[in-house]
Structure formats: C-alpha cells, structure tokens
Nucleic acid binder design. Structure first.
Ligand SMILES: [Zn+2]
Ligand SMILES: [Zn+2]
Lengths: 474, 474
DNA sequence: CAGGCATGCCTG
DNA sequence: CAGGCATGCCTG
C-alpha cells in the first residue's frame, strides 16, 4: 500500500498555482478566498492498494477537482474563467469511461475520500463519503426552504454541523468493477421543443421541465443483488457547487405536479415505482434512489424514466446556474461501485437551446477568420489588441482551424486538459511523477494484465475518437 | 324601499345581456361556461332605498361586472375581448368620478353589496361589504400559499365557506364627499430603468420592484379624524380578478426584503411608520392601511411612500397579469369615503416598458407596410448557406481558440495527425497497427516513457505550424 | 411546432 | 444607465 498525503490548501495557494493567477490574468480573477474551516491543516490521506493503479492524467484530473472544489480554494468568479474550469471537468468526466477501465480500484472508501476532499477524515466521522447516504426516506416536503438558506438542519448533532454546509460529491466518471455506464438513446427527430435531446458534442442533456426523459444504464458485469442507482443533481460551477440543488419555492409549493408526490422539493424524480427520495442528513443533498436492474434478455441497456422539476432558469432555485446529475451505482451499504455524470439543462426549448449552445461552442468559424487582415476598422482593432499582446506567451490566444467535428471535439478536450494542467503547482506535478514512477516500477515486476497496459499506452497517445464515443453511440 | 331581485345566471343567459354578446363579437368568444355551484339558484337581493338612484348605464356596468366575474358567468378567454371588458371598466372607473357623483348614496352597506354581488346577503353575514375590513392584523406570513390554490381558509365557518372564493372589490373612481384624489408628481427625468414613471396617457404606473414609489393623496375637505387610506391590489382582468393578489412564493419565502417585515406575503407595502397590514377574514384580500393625514401647511398633497414587492411577471405570483391598486379612504368603521385606483406594472425597466406600452397603444402606423424584400446580397447569402449545408459533417470547419503558444503548437500537431490519419488508406493503417503492436510488446519490458517521445516524433512529421498561426486576439 | 415576443438581467 | 441577450411562453 502506498500512501499519498497532501494538503488541499497547498494545491491552490502555493508556488506555481499562485503564479498562474498572476500577471494579466489575475485581474480577471477577483477570486474570493473562502477560508476553509473544515479542511485547514488537515491532510487528506489517499491510500492506494498495490493493484490500484492510476496514470498521471488520472491523478491529474482529480487534483483538478480538488483544486476547483475544495473549500480552501480560490474560487474563480468570472464566468470566462469558470467555464474553462467546469466545462473541462465535465468533459473529462464524460470521456473518462474508457480511461477508467485501466484502473483497478479496490478501496471504495479511500477512493471516495480522494474524490471528495472537503470532508476531512476526522476521528469521529472519518469515512464520510458523500456517496454513502443516510437511510433517510422521510422528506419534510411541506416545509418550504428559502433558497440561499444557510441554516443547518436542526437535528444534526453539533459535531457534524461543522461540516453541514453542503459538501461536494464527486462527479468523476468511474465505471468501476462492474463497468457502470449510462447513455441516451438515439433521438428520433429533434424539434425546437422536443422533450429532450442529448448533445454528444457538449455531453449535455437538454430537457423540458417536468417531462419524462429516458436514461439508459448498464453494467458490464452483474453487481451484487440489491445494488441501487442514485441520481443526484449538483451545480457545475465552483461558486455554486456547495449549495444543495433543490426546486425553487414556486415549483416546490404549487399544487401542480406535487399533488401527492412524496418529495416536492426534489429536482430530480424517477418514475420507477420503487424510487425512493432521500435527503442526506449532513449535506442536505437530495437524491432519488432506484433499484439497479438487469436488462431484458437480449437488451444491453436498462432504461429508467426521469423528470426534472424546475427550469435551469428558475428564479429562487437553479437560477440559471448549470447543473449536472450524478448517477452512482451503490451497494446496500451506500458504497459507490460506479459513477457517471451528465450536465443537464432544463429548459422550455431543448432543441433551440442545444443548437444555440453548440453554435456558441464552435467559436469563430472560417467566416470570421480574416486571411489578409483587412484595414480600416480591423486595423484599429488589432492596434488595441496590440496592447494586450504584451502578455507573456502563455496568455496569448491562438486559433486553430480543424476539419471534421470528431477531431474538433477531441482537440477541444485536449486543449482543455492542457490549459488546466498548467494550473497545478509544480510540487504536485513532481510528486505525482514520482508516484507514476513507482507505479511503473510495479508494473514491470507485477506485469499486470498486459492487455490493459498496452491499451492504456495506446490511448494516452491519441486514441481514435470513435472509441470514446462508443458507449454513447449505440 | 324598492327591491330588485335577479338571478345572476339570468343576467348572462337571457335577453339583453346575451344580446350584448351577440353579433360579430360573439364568435371571438369561445366562452367557457362554468357551472356555478354557489350562485346557482340563489337569488341576489338588492335593496335600494328610495333615495338610492341608479341610471341604466350604471346598472348595466354592474351587471357586466357580475356577468364577467360571477362564477356563473361566461368567462371570456380571448385577450382582445378581455381587454375590451376590463379596459372599459378602467375607463369608466377613471371617468366615473363625475358619473358617480350623480348618485346619492346613503347606505354604504347596500351600495357595497351592489358593487359586490358575489357575496349574497344571506341571513348570517349579510353586510359583507368588500370595503369594510376586518380588524385583522396578524398575517400568517410564514404559511406559503400555493398559487391557484382553491382551498378554503380553515377557520372560516362552513356557511361562509360557500362564498369564500375571493370577492371583487370595486375599483370605481369615487371622490366622495371629501373629494379624495391621488396623483403622481411630475417626473424629473425618465431613464430606461427609472424607479418609477407614471403615464398619464395610459393612466398607468410603471414601477421597479421593491423600490420606493411616492404617491400623492389629497382630500378637498377634511374627513373625520382617524380616517385611513387603504391600498389593495387586485387583478385587472375578469378572469383573474377573483384571485387574491399576493407575492409569489419565491419572493414571499426568501430572506431578501422579508428579514423582519410583518407581512412578507403582501405585494403592496407602505413605508409609513403606522402602516398596518391586513388580510380580510372572508375574502383573504391583503391590503395595507395607513393614516390619512393633512398636508403640510401650504401643500396640497400628502405624499406616501409605497413599495411593490413582486414583478408583474413573477411566476407563481402575478404571473404577467396586470393589476391595479385601489386606494380607499375609509372611516373608522371601514366605510368607504372615497376611492381611486391606478393600474400598476411592476417591472425591471419602467422606462422601457412605458415607452413600449405607449407605443403599442398608438394605432398602427405606416411603418408596418411591408417593403418589397430586397434581393441581391440576401439572396446570395442564403444560397451559399444552402451549399455548405450539403457537406458531410467531416468536412465542416471549426475554429478552436487556445491560450498559450505551447498548447497551440501541440494541438496543431495533433490536429495535423488527426487530419492526416484520415487520409491514410486502411491497408496502411492496419500495417501500421501491426508494427505498433510489436513495438508495444517491446515496451512492456522497457520504460514506458520512451513510447511517448517516439510517438510524438512520428506523428509530427511534415508539418508547417507557421501556416496555422492565427493570431486570434481576444 | 417554429417564429417571435416579453421581460429580467448582464455587460460595457 | 442603455444596449442587448436569455429564455419562458404565446400565437398562428
Ligand atoms: Zn422552479
Ligand atoms: Zn415575486
């Protein structure tokens, strides 16, 4: 067993990372520093079994998560910065599926801790995985809870109230031992106001409020009996992610749709007859739990029907803040066996908004790109840019023209991870490289499953995009 | 005493009134007939003293009110019709000042009944003037009330529950014996988002939510001591007018503005220190009551400061339904001494919306006439789009913006190899894969690092990065 | 169902 | 503070 220790505050505040925030970029930041009471000075222990392997990118990715989500972090506030951060996260989460298969993760608990550094492993409630949920089933649905309410749940014991400000569940894609995956069926036709549509390109579900949206689940291997699937919404952006996602008072209070529903405050509903609505004792996070079932004979996927009960734009609720829904495969103890997440936008016109969103993503197209720089207005423009050009070369912005959407999407992801990786302090990088070395040494001796290693190698070099899309495309 | 008996259902369905709905207007009607349980078969008894006079128009107007508002009525659904109805009402209300003075109204009670025929004068609670308010001061502000809720107030006795669906207060302008008037001071300047602006033309106040709006009051003659002014909002349109105007659950529930306000559910607030918030026992109507005061020496008007606590557009609240605020001058018994009403639109940009509203009121001008659609460039554009659309998606061109030269160069290489690889015949790909396999086997024994280097080198063959440099300046 | 408006809110 | 976008919803 190897053990990695690191302090989450370090990640953000020391050396390289602060350097990253310096220079011309820093002004955009206006970062708010939230002193983390719970995380301060507490090291997080990540234990990795000998057969728990991790490539550099993987660790990397999770360090990013820590850096972005920890209470002790400098949370960026400006949108442009944010989106860099969170868009990235989604994408890596989504593409992680195949990557994940390279890893043998045995210890659920330590993994969970790793992915959720906000809850420190104190003596008392040390293994407080955000994924292990209380048995709560009774939701006090009638009590209206003001949004932005920071009040603690009254029945939470003092000791745990220290951590009762909502924690941040991991959204990392993790197929796990049972190969847990989700997907969306091919769309028949997509109109402006289709009830739902999934964008591969954005890895984002656009869905109309309070309509039924089918989501498909599968496991490569059959998990233990009574395994469940949990669906939990969280905010995408670091500034919001700690806030529990709930319906707005309006929708939670109306009769409409709530007539005799057990959980009017829950954003995510599942139409499964056995769906159970839970609210976590400590975090207050709301989720719906449904049984994991085996597909019909001959079928690959099991489809479950979900409903999203507020608009992403709902005032006093999501309030235009993007969310994702995290699906976790859990055993009877609430241990996480697998995890997949999707960004979800709940809106009135999924078709329209998807198109707009996709268009906005492929930024300036060939039209905009001036071959011969035209004079007149453009000259002025470039002059004014000239000032900005003084930035050091790392802040220069370039444009790359790419033919074909597949390549474009792949390069988007690569671009994102490259840019993001520059945020990690050198220290950490070094320490992980060391880890990586150790790991490689093990590999040489143990010679673990050759196929996988080979696969990993190939992958890290630039695998065909097809592979990545595989599970989404059937 | 004369006594007029009539059945509210009759009013709609028989003789003259149905004639009113006939002719070319009728087709637009698509009226929905709501069978009225409470009103059916119950005759309304209006007793008029010998000195209580009424002209035909006056009765007519009130019959229309009954027709439009009673449960037993044909409720018009189309907007144009609606507006005919209610605009009309407003106008008569506004111009009514003089008309009203033609009547000698002695008995407040019977008058009130007349104006509010929805509450029949049963034995039990016969004198239920909508204007005479209960002494209620304690507002159960914490209980959220779902909008469209039809549930009865639990403490209302059964007998009166029959009529507990909110009644319709009169909004007729009535200066009364004391010459009660309201006005708005001249606007200094009017910007798009000025806090408030009053349109004489529309007789409509445009005001920003939760800001202070000064409204001026006067009486021509001094009313008795302890006379008060009541401000009560009601919906303008007949379809909504019976519903009590309240804040939306969102705003009523948030901490914002409600911190220690006695009546978070009330839409209309008054900044007067002695302002009292009331909720009528039977109707559930909410209002704020303030002392009527004499103007400062030499001044004509007394200014009181009001706030409107929801947007007219608030979902789950006003929900884009126009309202008006009725100001009544009342004696200590709650008898109405005078009445004035204003339409109020609570919005984010009073200036903009006023302008738009006034413009919309003007008849259609020549602007609308359609020019011949221009040809030329426009045509070409659409043509050229047509062409591009035919491309298969792999030929689409995208642009990627990248920060930092290193990343840019790296991605250039990746882009190139991706594009290149798609040009290589399958044969060759296969043969290459075979080589790659062999190579990987070797690697398993050696260090992993080397692969990366090698591979990178291979991939980046033959490329001109220079070409690709697009200096894209943010 | 698409076009387009209404309207809060964000941005410069 | 004005211009203009985002986004629910209305209308044909
Ligand atoms: Zn909502
Ligand atoms: Zn409101």
């Amino acid at each position: 067993m190897t053990s990695i220790l690191f302090d989450p505050e370090q990640i953000i505040l020391d050396g390289e990372s602060s350097a990253y925030f310096n220079g011309s970029v820093i002004e955009q930041f206006k970062g708010e520093y939230i002193p983390s009471s719970s995380a301060t000075g507490q090291d997080l222990a990540i234990k990795m079994g000998s057969n728990e392997t991790a490539t550099f990118e993987y660790l990397w990715k999770n360090m990013r998560e820590i850096a972005g989500q920890s209470n002790g972090g400098l949370l960026p506030q400006r949108d442009n910065i944010d989106s860099e951060l969170y868009v990235n996260e989604t994408e890596s989460a989504a593409t992680g599926t195949n990557d994940m298969e390279r890893f043998q993760i045995n210890s659920q608990d330590s993994m969970a801790e790793f992915l959720n550094p906000i809850i420190p492993a104190t003596g008392q409630n040390h293994v407080m995985s955000p994924d292990s949920h209380s048995q709560t089933t009774d939701i006090s649905s009638t009590t209206p809870s003001p949004y932005h309410s920071q009040t603690m749940s009254p029945n939470v014991p003092i000791s745990s109230q220290m951590h009762s400000s909502p924690t941040v569940p991991s959204s990392a894609s993790y197929s796990g031992d049972y190969g847990f995956e989700i997907s969306f069926q091919q769309q028949s036709k997509e109109t402006k106001s289709t009830t739902w549509t999934y964008s591969e390109m954005l890895r984002k579900l656009f869905v109309r409020m309070a309509t039924t949206c089918p989501i498909r689940f599968k496991t490569a291997r059959t998990p233990p009996p009574n395994t469940v699937i949990r669906a939990m919404p969280i905010y995408m952006k670091p500034e919001h992610v700690r806030e529990v996602v709930k319906r707005c008072p309006n929708h939670a209070t109306t009769k409409e749709y709530n007539e005799n529903h057990p959980a009017p405050e829950h954003l995510v509903r599942c139409e499964h007859k056995l769906a159970r609505y839970e609210e976590h004792d400590y975090t207050g996070r709301q989720s719906v739990v449904l049984p994991h079932e085996q597909p019909q004979p001959g079928a690959e996927w099991v489809t479950n029907l979900f409903q999203f009960m507020c608009f992403s734009s709902c005032v006093g609720g999501l309030n235009r803040r993007p969310i994702q829904v995290i699906f976790t495969l859990e055993d009877t103890q609430g241990n996480v066996l697998g995890r997949q997440a999707v960004e979800v936008r709940i809106c009135a016109c999924p078709g329209r908004d998807r198109r707009a969103d996709e268009k906005a993503t492929e930024p300036v197209t060939a039209h905009k790109r001036p071959h011969t720089p035209r004079m007149g207005m453009n000259t002025e423009v470039s002059t004014s840019f000239g000032t900005k050009r003084k930035r050091n070369s790392d802040d220069e912005v370039f444009t790359l023209t790419i033919k074909g959407r597949e390549n474009f999407e792949m390069l988007c992801r690569l671009r994102d991870s490259l840019e993001l990786s520059s945020m990690i302090p050198q220290q950490q990088v070094d320490s992980y490289k060391r880890q990586q070395n150790d790991y490689n040494k093990q590999l040489e001796v143990v010679a673990v499953e050759k196929t996988k290693v080979r696969n990993a190698t190939t992958t890290s070099r630039g695998r065909t995009v097809k592979n990545e899309y595989q599970f989404f495309n059937e």
